[in-house]
Design a protein around this nucleic acid. Structure first.
Lengths: 233, 233
DNA sequence: GAGTTGGTTCGGCCGCTGCCGAACTATCGC
DNA sequence: GCGATAGTTCGGCAGCGGCCGAACCAACTC
């Protein structure tokens, strides 16, 4: 059974606490240095170096050297998608009632980046708003940007490729581990996230995947998206 | 970082050779007994029992007792999708050139079930044929069944739900680890597979995920799907 | 009843691997 | 040159977990 062999290797890499913590942090979409990752995973730099070496050798991560620092990032959308799907299964499996809460976790539950798009209550709320206006269609197995949605996003400042001959679909549902509902991923999801950050509606919390919604952002969501921003709590 | 904790558990379960072999075997879509899985993974029944216990407790597998046998199967499509995505990453990571070949592997490469749909050269060829006829649209991030495709599949005997208000999309691309191209998954993929088996076009090889294309099937694919079946080699 | 088969539990062995500290290299600023 | 910071490599320790054999249980056959 050659078939299973390589799968084991990949899964085993993710199946370690320190490495999974690093991968989860990098799912924020930003590149982080070796030392930062060591701190987050609560291991020494020596240990972190070993882990990062394994992850890059397996092509789960990619490195870029910048000055004295080595910046690590998720190597490809395929890897991000894999991590998403593992997380989705893990979330199902956890007993839904007892969720140990922390301020950090609450911030993540409100809004966070998921590789290149938005997740959390805010991500789901935006997805809901766009579905309600029939700009996108989301379901268990696929997503679609409607013609009206394409117009809306272009007006919003997104770079949306013209519907080519092959009619590539750039919209994909992503199961939210905290909300257990779908938010928007794929090119469309990434563009929405990018534009919101660019306009200052959202700002990244440094050292975390969490995202903060600004006052401008609240107004923007009401006016442009015609939605009520979720409660920050 | 509560976020990463559960992900580790799931990944670690898949990250063991014996367990991954069992999961890969069950990705064939059929339920297998404890002893069969022990044999496939080449461990004693004692060891297999431990592994299967862990996998069911984590809700990756589900059991049904039938007479004296316990039949294990993949617990949900979500789990199947996760395994697919791990496999897809693993396939990318392997050096493409040196692929140790065996008769068993060749059979799998030609045609196999992937949980509930078809994969391998045959799966990709069928997907190609349907795309060429504009019955389905497939891309990196999504899939879609066209109106013509819906008509075609209904005529073929598939149970295709009517396009409801929410316009659920039942068609999903699935990255083929052997071909590195997409084949059709989701409800549409499952129905195509089911109908082909029902008509005797395809038969399962017992004790394997491999699928054999019958003579009737070859004629059927030519006449109904208007395609040339791939070389069995 | 006795024998067979499918499966689980238990105890113990052994190897893998994650972890650290210390030594080392490389790059930067002074 | 020196010192500081970022990161890797190495040796050694310790613990987790996968594996098996043997005992055990439960269901079925004769």
């Amino acid at each position: 059974m050659v078939a299973a062999a390589n799968m084991v290797e990949i899964a085993a890499l993710v199946g370690d606490t320190a490495r999974a913590t690093m991968l989860a942090a990098l799912m924020g979409g930003q590149a982080l240095t070796s030392s930062e990752l060591a701190g987050l995973a609560r291991v020494t730099r020596a240990t972190a170096s070993e882990h990062l070496g394994k992850l890059t050798q397996a092509r789960l991560l990619a490195v870029t050297q910048k000055r004295r620092n080595r910046y690590y990032r998720i190597a490809s959308p395929l890897v991000a998608k894999m991590l998403e799907s593992i997380k989705a299964v893990a979330a199902l499996e956890t007993p839904p009632r007892y969720q140990p809460r922390s301020a950090q976790d609450d911030a993540l539950r409100f809004a966070r980046t998921c590789y290149d798009h938005l997740a959390g209550r805010l991500g789901v709320a935006i997805a809901d708003a766009l579905v309600r206006k029939r700009y996108v269609v989301l379901s268990d197995e696929g997503g679609e940007l409607t013609v009206a949605g394409r117009r809306f996003l272009s007006g919003f400042g997104s770079v949306i490729m013209p519907a080519s001959g092959s009619r590539r679909i750039f919209c994909r549902p992503c199961l939210d581990w905290s909300e257990r509902r779908y938010h928007i991923a794929g090119h469309v999801g990434a563009e929405i996230c990018r534009c919101c950050l660019e306009r200052g509606w959202l700002v990244r919390q440094k050292g975390s995947r969490a995202i903060r919604l600004t006052a401008v952002g609240q107004r923007g969501l009401r006016q442009v998206f015609g939605m009520e921003p979720p409660d920050m709590r």
